[in-house]
Amino acid sequence: MKKKTFAIFVGPSVFMMVLFIAAPLLSILWLSVHVTQPVYEQVEVEICTPGLLGSVCSTELKTRPLLDESGRILTQTTFVGLQSYRNVIEPEKLRSAIANGSWRELMNIRFWSALRFTLVFTILTLPLVLGTGLLIALAVNNTLQRIKGPVIFVSLLPFIITPVIGALSIRWLFIGDGILTAGLEWWLDRDIAMFAQAWTIELMMYMYRVWHVAPFAFVVFYAGLQTVNNDAVEAAIIDGASRWQRLRYVIIPHLMPLVIFLTLIHLMDAYRVFEEIVGFSASAYVISLQWLTYEFLLQDGTGARAISRASASAILTMIGVAVLLGLPLRRVWRERKGS
């Protein structure tokens, strides 16, 4: 294909990606080192209150935003260097937390607690998702032909459901004296409030994520199982391999490329954990990096948005995902080159 035709075919797509992905990335770099604020002026105001003998007057110094001729608040953008990053990371508090060796103090800083949760969430759910997916795939592969279709249909439901709604549906099972909380209380014979402390909420988030993504792993593994080389399995049987050995030494090595694929996708997606926090209303207890940026972007009480801090936290989030994906990707890259 000639360069020109290629350019015409690919052009619209590249244009959209440059305008809406590459440009915003550059813009947050700029935004994160600048702060836009209303310009304030100080004015002396005479305040009079009616007293017993005529009015009592006093003058006060008041700050108010400057308005331009059309009545809008005048703003001014200044270069602040790394101040916004400092506001997000809070290095003084970090230093004192490390000096005191206090984990609790560290977790009081929103950024570090968000980072902690995001990483733990990503790493912890990975083996659970892979394991559950593989188990379901093996079980489906093992079952009657006739019920495979319906089972796949049911399995797809948690995957396809809107993440916020999925999280909400789990929340409604547990909230208050919800049906599952009641069941747990009956079983453990004690009072349980799932939404009263951080760790139970976190536990529900892990459970939700495994429920939500395991079907994807299942479908991919199931497709992989269809291509297992029967001759190799037969040879293993002749060599006297047990069922477990066949799984361990023939089937799982065959599925290894899929494991790497799923791991990469999972790292990308789990690092973005966000909808769970909306669905479980968890922001008072645990937050994730995406939530931190989201929170800065929301309007505060005065209608202002902390754009600069949001950009700084976005950049930090991005660095995080680069580090997280860099390690496994480099390994894949080396293996590709080696082979």
Binding site: M17, S27, L31, M268, T293, A314, M318
Partner: peptide, 23 residues
């Protein structure tokens, strides 16, 4: 192009929204 697209695939969406919102 495909490699860059893969990198873009990994970006959390909040990063992009932070870039759009003020504009």
């Amino acid at each position: 192009l495909l490699v860059v697209a893969l990198v873009f695939r990994a970006l959390p969406h909040s990063v992009l929204v932070a870039g759009y919102l003020p504009y």
